[in-house]
């Protein structure tokens, strides 16, 4: 591990931010708390995706598959087979990790280029959605309603909205921590080298297949874990939300707007855009159908044109200018 990693862990800013976030449920009104919880879910997704999309530089459109496995499989195991959802969460994560590794292997074996990789991963996600919609065990098109939360932690129930906020915050922090850890460890160097130039990476001894599989598997496991928790939070495993490739597009968008090359891009992207999107819906949603989407879309286009590197690098430039 690079010494810088422990420097970040000791940073007071990090701990202040964590404490600030952790006390949000104590005073935020429930509507805003829901917004903050959603933001945490997407911060987690964006970080998980960033391991493949940002660090390895492969635009994966498969990630709704992993979220879907986490949400639908863990819910189905509970409802159909009575398997405890904590256990279901781990089983689903294992399945997602293996699916991720297989996709990375397919990519390597058939030497897919960037475009083919995006399309093949999208195909995997589409197939995943079709499987969920067509297989009653996983809920089919009507989805799976989870039992009422009775605050029983052993049954993967976190009580009220604060409980879910804290658990999803834990997962988002886990995804962030895994990103930072990878970035400062040999795996991060190998992935960045692969992103920069695969042949040159091999020439200095980097095992491209192993590292790509590892990155995809880690990314898939994180998405799956958050997917399970998200479904439990919503008390409804909705295939059209959780297993749909649209979800991936949202994740990719958030990470890209935040800045994929920056360690804090996904945090900035999802942390800002999810609340903004929700607020736009709150203000304009009832005025004219689709108006909030229009404004949201316009906002994204402006950011992408003005700051192609993303918001996070722009913020750090601003910060440096003011601190000088």
């Amino acid at each position: 591990m690079k010494p810088e990693f422990f420097g970040i862990l000791r940073s007071p800013v990090l701990w202040l931010a964590l404490v600030f976030t952790a006390v949000l449920p104590l005073w935020l009104p429930s509507y805003y708390l829901h917004m903050a919880t959603l933001a945490l879910v997407y911060v987690g997704f964006a970080y998980a995706w960033n391991i493949v999309g940002g660090l390895t530089g492969q635009v994966s459109l498969a990630h709704s598959l992993f979220v879907g496995i986490g949400a639908m499989l863990a819910s189905a195991l509970l409802l159909r087979l009575g398997i405890n959802m904590w256990v279901g969460m781990l089983i689903a994560a294992l399945v997602s990790g293996m699916a991720g590794a297989v996709i990375a292997w397919v990519d390597y074996r058939f030497r897919l280029g960037h475009l083919s990789f995006a399309l093949i991963t999208l195909a995997f996600a589409e197939v995943g959605e079709l499987v969920v919609l067509g297989w009653d065990f996983l809920g089919g098109a009507s989805g799976l309603y989870l039992p009422k939360d009775q605050g029983n932690l052993q049954s993967f129930q976190f009580g009220g909205s604060s409980g879910y906020f804290w658990f999803l915050m834990l997962l988002a922090v886990l995804a962030l921590g895994v990103n930072l850890a990878i970035l400062n460890s040999p795996l991060g160097f190998f992935l960045r080298a692969i992103r920069g130039n695969e042949g040159a990476a091999q020439a200095v001894g980097v095992n491209v297949l192993r590292n790509k599989m590892l990155a995809m598997a880690i990314s898939a496991v994180l998405c799956s874990l958050i997917g399970t928790a998200y479904a439990r939070y919503l008390t409804f495993a909705d295939p059209y939300l959780l297993a749909s490739p649209n979800l991936t597009i949202e994740i990719v968008l958030l990470a890209t707007i935040g800045g994929v090359s920056s360690a804090f891009g996904p945090l900035v992207g999802a942390g800002l855009l999810i609340p903004i999107g929700e607020m736009l819906r709150g203000h304009f949603g009832s005025m004219l159908p689709g108006l909030h989407y229009f404004i949201y879309g316009l906002l994204l286009v402006v950011v992408i044109i003005a700051l192609p590197q993303g918001l996070a690098p722009a913020f750090s430039r601003l910060y440096r200018r003011f601190s000088n």
């Binding site: 160097f189 080298a193 992103r195 920069g196 130039n197």
Partner: peptide
């Protein structure tokens, strides 16, 4: 490599 192969942003 004959054509210099760099890791673009490292």
């Amino acid at each position: 490599f004959q054509v210099v192969q760099v890791f673009t942003d490292m």
